[in-house]
Simulated scan of single mutants.
Amino acid sequence: MSEPAPIAVIRTQALGKVYSPGTEAEVVALKGVDLSIGRGDFVAIMGPSGSGKSTLMNLIGCLDTPSSGKYECDGVDVSTLDKEELATLRRDKIGFVFQGFNLLPRMSALENVAMPLGYAQIPPAERKRLAQEALAAVGLSERAGHRPSELSGGQQQRVAIARALINKPPILLADEPTGALDSKTGEEILALFKRLRDEDHTVVLITHDAEVAAHADRIYLMHDGELHEQTGAAA
């Protein structure tokens, strides 16, 4: 007997999103998007502003709900979940990394990384241990006590990545994660994403930059709310 096909970590079927439907302000942001991403994949979704890529990221990240179609996150149909269940799924399954780092300025790197564990009601001593492990994983053990203003842009983004990984989510969503960094530091962050992929994380990179997208194993192009896979992507 052949083994059953592995469940896609991210699977969308005919996913659509319409804002202000039936009004003069109606915007069709996504049109029938079919997407399947497996565990350990590194995928880039590329497109200009207004193409729908941020809308798609918000749906994949369970920050918004679709107008039509279906989304399964790690085998769970998100439309079956109430608000509390959705928040739990988002906390446990998805780590977010943003262009602006979104670190709290008065907290140390360690405290910023540990913060999501507070919502999960993890005891303080365990929070600290896990946060130290996460910082070590991104090469920042020696910066644990530093505040964001005492860190370079690349170091701040590494702290943000450690925070995104603290709950050990299978999915890492990165929205223009190198946009605020110089090219050398950006390359270091992309190399870190490749290492995370090799450790079985699923990395979804949202970008408008073709050079950044070329680091992914597969590239999808968004245009006018439609998604198409680009052939010949660099590994």
Rank of each mutant, 00 (worst) to 15 (best):
A180D: 14
E26N: 11
N112S: 05
V28Q: 13
K53A: 08
S67E: 05
A210C: 06
L130H: 14
V203C: 09
A234N: 14
L104S: 05
G118L: 10
N112H: 11
Y71L: 14
F96I: 03
K53I: 03
A29K: 04
C73G: 11
E199F: 09
A180G: 10
A109P: 10
V27E: 00
P6K: 02
P124M: 03
G186E: 01
S183F: 00
S36H: 06
F96W: 06
L35K: 01
N102C: 09
K31L: 00
P105M: 07
V97R: 13
E72M: 03
A210R: 12
L56M: 08
A25R: 15
A235I: 13
A44H: 07
V113R: 13
R147I: 10
K194L: 07
M46Y: 00
L173M: 12
L89F: 11
Q13T: 12
S51K: 08
L130Q: 14
T88F: 01
A162H: 04
L130I: 15
Y119H: 15
I219R: 10
H146A: 14
D34R: 00
V212Q: 05
S79H: 06
F98W: 12
A214L: 04
N112G: 01
S49Y: 04
I171T: 06
A137I: 01
R129S: 14
A14M: 05
D82T: 03
G145M: 06
N167W: 07
R147E: 10
P177T: 05
R91W: 04
Y71C: 09
D198H: 14
A191N: 13
L165D: 13
T88G: 00
K31A: 00
Q99F: 08
E126A: 07
G40S: 03
F101N: 08
G52P: 12
K128V: 10
C62A: 15
L130D: 00
G145I: 01
H228M: 13
G52A: 11
L173Y: 03
E188H: 05
F42C: 12
A216E: 02
E188W: 02
D182E: 06
K83S: 15
A134E: 00
A216W: 03
G118C: 06
L172Y: 02
L173P: 05
R11I: 00
G153Q: 08
G16Q: 07
G225A: 09
I122A: 09
I37F: 05
G69T: 01
S51C: 13
S51N: 05
L81E: 14
V43D: 08
L135R: 03
R163H: 12
P169C: 12
